[in-house]
Design a protein around this nucleic acid. Sequence first.
DNA 1: ATGTCC
Length: 464
Amino acid sequence: MGTLKLKGKDLLKLGFPNNQSINIALEVMKRNFATKNIHHVKTLLKNILHEPQNFADDLTFGQIAEALLTSNKTEKRMLLQNRVPFQIFGNNISDETKNQLYTGLKLPISVQGALMPDAHLGYGLPIGGVLAVENVVIPYAVGMDIGCRMSLSILDTPISYLDGAKDKYEKALAEHTKFGMNEVHKTHIDNEIFERDTFDLIPILKRMKGKAHKQMGTSGGGNHFVEFGEVEITEEEAQIDLPKGKYLGILSHSGSRGFGAEIAQYYSRVAAEQCPLPKEAQNFAWLSLDSHLGLEYWTAMTLAGDYASACHDDIHRRLLKAVGGRVKARIENHHNFAWKEIHNGKEVIVHRKGATPANENELGIIPGSMTAKGFIVRGKGNPDSLHSASHGAGRQHSRGACKNLFTQNDIKKELKLKKITLLGGSTEEAPMAYKNINEVMNAQSESVDILGTFQPRIVRMKGK
DNA sequence: ATGTCC
C-alpha cells in the first residue's frame, strides 16, 4: 500500500498557520488519500485553507476547516491543583493505580471519578477506573478493547446434561469458538451490523470492514474466554423472569477484536496530537464532542460496541446450534465504553474502563475467575461509584509475575480441585492470578445487589 | 487488548 508523501513543511508552504491545523490536515489527508496524486491533495488543501467556511460541514474535511477557524488548539492544557470528587472501593489497590486516577481527577474537563475494587494499573485511566467528564471523550479512558463485554445466556437445558454429556460441550467449545490472533470461522451468516452506513461514512471504518467481517464471532486472547457452567438464580427478578434454581449457562468475555483496537489506537493518537497535556496526563488526551473528530470517534466507538455485541451473539448462536437448547434469558453488558448519562442533575460523559455499568435496576454479570463463581448483579445507582461496579475480581499478580509464580502443574492441580475443565489457557491467566472475588463483591455491596451466580465448568481460553 | 512495530 502506498503512503501519501505529505509533510508538515508542505502545509506551511501552502500557507497553513503553524498550529494544530497542520497535524489534523496531515491525518485527514493521509487517511483519505493513501495512494492519490499529491497535487490533487495540495489543491484541495489550498481550497480549504482559503475558504474554510465552505468546508465546515463537510464530513471528511470539516475538521481541517474547524482547526483553521479556531486558532488556539495548540495551547497546552494545564492540570488543576485540586481533584474533583472521587471514591475508591476496596482496600487492595496499589498507590500507582490510585495516582493514575488522581491525575485524571485534575483534568480541567473532569467532574467526578471512582475506582472499582478490582482496579489495577492501565494506560491513563486505570483498569477498573470510572471518570465522568464534561462534553468530551477520552479514547484511552474507554480503552484499547472498545466494547469489551460479558454475555451470559441462560438455557432451558437441564443442568445434569453438563456432566451427562460433558464431551459434547467440550467438543462444541473446541470446534465452535475461535481464539488467538489467527483463528477465524470458515463460514458466516449475514449480520445486520455490516449493513450500517457508518462503515462508508468514516474512512478508517471502511478500511477495517473486511477484517471485522473475517473476525466476527472470534474471541481473541488475554483474559477472554467462553465457558459452559452452572447458573444459579438466588433471587427472583422480573427482568430475568426465571424461578430460583440451577440452569446451564454460556458465558463469554471478549470485545471488538482488531476492529476496535485499530479505532482506539487511531483516535488515541489524534487526540494526543490535538490535545497536548503535561506528560503524566498524556494518555488522558480528549476530543471535544462539539468537534468533528470527537463525533467521529463517538460514532466509531458506538459501532465497535455494537460489533462486539454482535460477536457475542454469534458465539452463543454457534454453540447453541452445536449443543441444542433454547435461551431463556440473556444478561450482558459492556465494560469498556463511554456513555452519556445524567449524574447530579447534569449530563456528563462517563468512561468506564473495566467497570460494569450499575445504574439503578440495570442487570450485569461480573465474572470471578475460571475456578471461582461469578455474579449476576442488579445495579443500585450508587452515586459514589458513578453507577458502576467492578468487571471481575481483578489481577493480584501481573502477567509477568505469573510466569515465575505458577507452573502448568499448579494450574492443573487447582483445576482438578475445583472440577473445572480447561481448554487452552496459560500461566499468565492462572486462576490464582486473580483476587478473591468474594472480597471484591463485599467491597461494592453499596453499588450492586446479587441475584445469582455463575460457576464455570468447561472453560476455553487462548492457548494450547 | 492488538495480523502484539508500517
